[in-house]
Write a protein that binds this DNA or RNA. Structure first.
Lengths: 126, 126
DNA sequence: CTTGACATTGACACCGGCGTCAACGCTTAC
DNA sequence: GTAAGCGTTGACGCCGGTGTCAATGTCAAG
């Protein structure tokens, strides 16, 4: 399978696939003409990468998941390294949420200070 | 007052002040030798900018606050434009928090899926 | 033979808020 | 005179994940 087909099937651009390769996440055999040549397992790998990026993982975060898949595991998340990343990401997200909540109350306090009465109770607060 | 003194008093770098000027947030008279010349009110303005950036405002977001201060108001947040920005930022923060909460549960779900039992109850959840 | 769809590598652009360096000018103190 | 310590402008770098363009090669169909 060449890069265009993999791109279509995985829902990414060829450019993205070349970048993933440059970052050492995916590898490709080369056809005699120099074209990259992928197989079915690469579709799964790229899908794993996209699924993780969709929930905020960086490319580098996905590395252990890719390694896990390539080592034969049916799921990229079932290796200890992947689980560790999952838990680190959960912790990071929690930290970000706490930071955002703190910023929210800071902003609300500044608003209440600058304009008493402007801060009416509003829907949409977490 | 020259740029170094304003920088020290406002707790920012000279480079940052030049950048703020380039973005049209602050202005400076020029001494005959070409040096920027600031007055006391600029200390207040820069402090306002920093206070807002500290809670996640972009430089551009601070513009109405600066304008408000320069138009003579004792507080940068007491003008209608500033209040509007406050409320828009609150809404943005709420949106981000909701997105993070959604991502958090997505990640937790992926983890529970890949490794049942790995997701023990942990402290630090929002 | 030519066209068109695909492939290749390399490099610039983006976004925000500066840090950092270059190359130079002013001012004060010794 | 000169060294130190300020100031000036201009330009590149960073960070992540591509989009996009350029210049060129490959290959099947008409």
């Amino acid at each position: 399978m060449r890069i265009g087909e993999l791109a279509r099937r995985a829902g990414v651009s060829p450019r993205a696939l070349r970048y993933y390769e440059q970052q050492g996440l995916i590898r490709a055999r080369r056809s005699p003409n120099g074209y990259r040549d992928y197989d079915e397992s690469d579709v799964r790998i790229v899908a794993e990468i996209r699924a993780l990026m969709a929930v905020g993982f960086t490319l580098d975060d996905t590395r252990p998941f890719v390694d896990c898949l390539r080592s034969g595991h049916p799921s990229g998340g079932s290796c200890p390294e992947s689980v560790a990343v999952y838990q680190r990401k959960l912790a990071e997200i929690d930290t970000e949420i706490r930071a955002l909540l703190a910023r929210r109350s800071d902003v609300a306090a500044q608003l209440a200070d600058a304009c008493p009465g402007c801060l009416v109770s509003r829907r949409g607060e977490p």
